[in-house]
Write a protein that binds this DNA or RNA. Structure first.
Lengths: 209, 209, 209, 209
DNA sequence: AGCTAATCGAGACGGTACGTCACGTCTTAAT
DNA sequence: ATTAAGACGTGACGTACCGTCTCGATTAGCT
């Protein structure tokens, strides 16, 4: 899933004359960024901080990225190298549970804070918002949709329900609680969410329903 | 639901000696703030802007509020004067649908952007995050929980499902989409969300389930 | 030599109606001011500081004095209660030496710093400058002129030299060094100054003069 | 005698890497400062005023100078480009008269007000006081001491009198009157001061002396 | 083997918002 | 009428970060 800055920037048409872009610099910037983001929130990491830590000039940073938020997004994506294997247990509900528990576990660390900051900064940085959707959210959701599709194919999931809606019913509450912190977020909650999304909150015993 | 700055500050026991706090100033600040927030995002509204527009000094603003974000929250809360009547149609699902549609309608305007900015700024401003939960979220959710409680009492809603979870299953997706903008948010979606939360995504026809 | 605020302000015509002016307040203000000025420079003492220390409201302070600088001048003058006895040894040079040594001794303490601050603040506060001349400088110089007059009368001092010039030749260097700190200021210097002012710097032995 | 900010800052050893300090900015700042100081007193000139007038950012100003007072001192020094030719008429008294009259003439304008403000601000700004002595006073006095030295060498001036004292006897009264304004300051006074400093105030005719 | 560009580090720059401070004025209830 | 308390408008302060820019140095393909 890793996406380097090169993906965003124009492809190097043939070989350009002059000094080539420094790969070390890019790598140093991304690593320095993740390093800093592990310690303090995105808002408190300045472009100058990143440049200093990476041993790179601010100009280099701004040459390849429009601003530090997008550097951070890039660094975050680059750090998610290993492709996540989508489980396939034969039960969509079980698969979702596995994936969702893993997600909550992952976002409990500084990754969650970072995710929140991307969403937060995206409120006043449309480009970040856009890239966040394209580069991060879309691939994630495409993976998850496979579970949904299997569920529909197997007849487990009602075909009338939109796949995007299913994902948002699952991940919406998680993101909400991550951002606002008004409720707990652990394995128990993960299971309860999946169980409820699948079963619904309606009481079937009720005669009048 | 309106909450003025006075709620946050020490209550005026009897009448204090000395010049009283200017009610006009407070009101002017709150109105000016809402006025500005209707035009541009919270990030682009400065403390000086608010002070100028309110005909008030910056010092006065900082005397009563720690920063402009919390002024904005206060202004937002003050603008939500009218108590929202909780519907009671006899069906929790219907009640939720009414309320949820109203909410989505409300947050489609600048209110939604403001809500998003509160959540966004809250990521790097713990006090705002805390106040947002206490002053805004809590009262809202207490209202909504009444619908849930009636539903449980009537046997419509399965008693095993936590009320907070129900609210997050409904509002989580909305907030998620408001913040990230990866999916639509309209009356159709509102109904689909409520319907799915109540009915679940599981296909009951499936024999193997 | 003490001059109270009352001297500056309009005399209380008969008995006015209502609460009478608090003498304690005035005294408390003047004492508090001197107290504060002994600790830190005039610039760093605020009107609020004085009011707080005196247990008085800022409004009271501003009612009777135009600003804190003039409060300070008043406080300084009030603290110089005891009339200085002018020496009369029969020699103007000796008398001046005695007085000048005493002056340098006096201004070595915080009094000197205060004097400097009056002169300094006077650069941007014409009223202070004016009052400093009238209330402080004039009385001081009138005293000192007695020494000069006696010297002229006795034939010690050349009648062609203006008395004010004599005083400035003596005290100018002192004030200059107090303010700028470019040279020492002690008993030795005091004597050298008086000696030189009386004798001149010209070398009488020089034949060609 | 001109002293630029560069003198205060670390000398540019060879050519440093990176963008060089803008000479235009420095020059613009110094000129703008003098320009403003010709119109209103130092106290009423703000750092923002200078920056705006110079077309420079406040940050740049604060990068190179600790505060506006020292900018002003620098600007004042820079404006005193032309080296003052020390007169050499063969008579120290005459030389001093020429120089002193010129000084009084110079300080009659806004320069005198500026000088006073440097001394005034120096009372609460030790760095300014220090720089004023080092950068302004010292060079001035070294020039003037040449006159004194010649006078001593020629036998005109009594060798027992310290050169610094001679200068303070002459300039002390001038500075005193400039600051306090208690006496006139013109050509007549200038001559009277020099004459008295050289001849002393003592009446030689007096038999009893 | 130069020439020519693109890139690099360093860091200065204009701009703008921040939150604080002191000023001198004012309003209020109590004396 | 004057007081203590203290809120108020004004306006400067010095700091921080933004994103742009200008340097001289470095590097590599092209002549």
């Amino acid at each position: 899933m890793s996406i380097s800055a090169a993906d965003i920037l124009p492809a190097p048409k043939a070989k350009r004359r002059g000094r080539q872009r420094s790969v070390e610099a890019e790598s140093a910037i991304l690593h320095a960024t993740m390093n800093l983001l592990a310690k303090r929130p995105l808002r408190d990491v300045t472009a100058a901080d990143i440049a200093r830590k990476a041993g790179v000039s601010k100009a280099t940073l701004y040459k390849w990225w429009p601003n530090k938020n997008i550097v951070a997004l890039d660094a975050f994506l680059a750090s998610m190298q290993e492709a996540v294997a989508i489980p396939d247990t034969g039960s969509a509900e079980h698969d979702f549970t596995i994936q969702f528990e893993a997600a909550i576990d992952f976002y409990k660390n500084s990754s969650g804070r970072l995710l929140c900051h991307f969403i937060a900064e995206g409120q006043s940085d449309p480009e970040l918002r856009q890239l966040f959707r394209e580069r991060f959210l879309k691939p994630c959701r495409q993976n998850l949709k496979i579970i949904w599709q299997r569920g529909v194919a197997r007849g487990e999931i009602h075909p009338s329900v939109d796949g995007d809606l299913v994902l948002d019913l699952i991940f919406g509450p998680m993101v909400y609680r991550l951002l606002v912190g008004h409720g707990p977020l652990d394995e128990t909650q993960a299971r309860a969410i999946i169980r409820t999304v699948f079963g619904g909150v309606r009481n079937p015993q009720t005669p009048g329903q």
